[in-house]
């Protein structure tokens, strides 16, 4: 009992005997080739990626507030190959996290828990992410002036 929360890990097997359960979605417990668990951890990973991505938002806004030279620097970076690659990755991660998030809100409302629905909405999230990511960049390139 090195961790104070170990007490909370104690559960029961279906035969009634006690078992010390792992705390949380530990990756090694699940078969990651399953769509359900893979999409679940992807939601988390894309959330963490976007948390890092907000640094770009802070940089962009602070540079705009600082002056023309600072703004030119951030615009140069975002327009560079690395910058565009980062923005494209963030777009995909953002759409995934948004669509998977809507799926989570649906579950929070108590809907779509049966297995066929879970697979159908999971596929919809993947297809939607691809479509919306491409659409975003097509629009971006169309409106670039």
């Amino acid at each position: 009992m090195t961790d104070p929360r170990e007490a909370g890990f104690v559960g029961r097997r279906s035969d009634g005997s006690l078992i010390r359960r792992p705390l949380s979605p530990h990756l090694q417990v699940y078969d990651m080739a399953q769509m359900t668990s893979a999409l679940s951890i992807m939601h988390r990973i894309t959330g963490v990626i976007w948390s890092a991505g907000t640094l770009l938002l802070v940089w962009w806004l602070m540079a705009a507030a600082t002056g023309e030279a600072a703004f030119a620097a951030v615009q140069w970076f975002l327009g560079s190959f690395l910058g565009l690659l980062l923005l494209f990755g963030l777009t995909a991660a953002g759409w995934y996290h948004t669509l998977a998030g809507i799926r989570h809100l649906m579950w929070d409302a108590g809907r779509g828990f049966d297995l066929p629905s879970v697979y159908a909405t999971g596929r919809a999230v993947l297809i939607g992410t691809a479509v919306l990511t491409v659409l975003t960049w097509v629009l971006l390139l169309l409106f670039w002036n």
């Binding site: 802070v58 806004l61 705009a64 507030a65």
Partner: peptide, 9 residues
Amino acid sequence: MALASAFAV
């Protein structure tokens, strides 16, 4: 980060 962004805006 929130303060910096809000201040900039």
